[in-house]
């Protein structure tokens, strides 16, 4: 496929968290990696990010009720 999925209006902004941000996030929610929602590494929205298993993806969703809010998913295999 030639187009970038991120350009589509249905796809919110995806970005990868640095190791530091990752630690802060897990500390804030007192969560472990396996408790986070998942996203597959092969997901079309991640094609322009180089991700590996265990990375956390920050997704900035536009919501009618809360404006823009962040949602986090952890990358799992293929």
């Amino acid at each position: 496929m030639t187009m970038d999925a991120l350009k589509h209006s249905l796809v919110p902004k995806h970005s990868k968290l640095s190791d530091n941000e990752k630690a802060v996030l897990l500390e804030k929610y007192a969560a472990e990696l396996k408790q986070l929602p998942r996203i597959y590494g092969s997901d079309p929205a991640l094609s322009s990010l180089s991700v590996k298993e265990g990375d956390i993806i920050k997704i900035e969703r536009a919501s009618k009720t809360a404006g823009i809010f962040a949602y986090y998913r952890v990358v799992t295999g293929n």
Binding site: M1, A5, H8, L10, V11, P12, H14, I39, Y40, D43, P44, A45, L46, I59, R61, R73
Partner: peptide, 12 residues
């Protein structure tokens, strides 16, 4: 939509 645009688009 899931296979072309990913899980977030599918949710939407």
């Amino acid at each position: 939509v899931y296979s072309v645009l990913g899980v977030e688009a599918a949710r939407q």
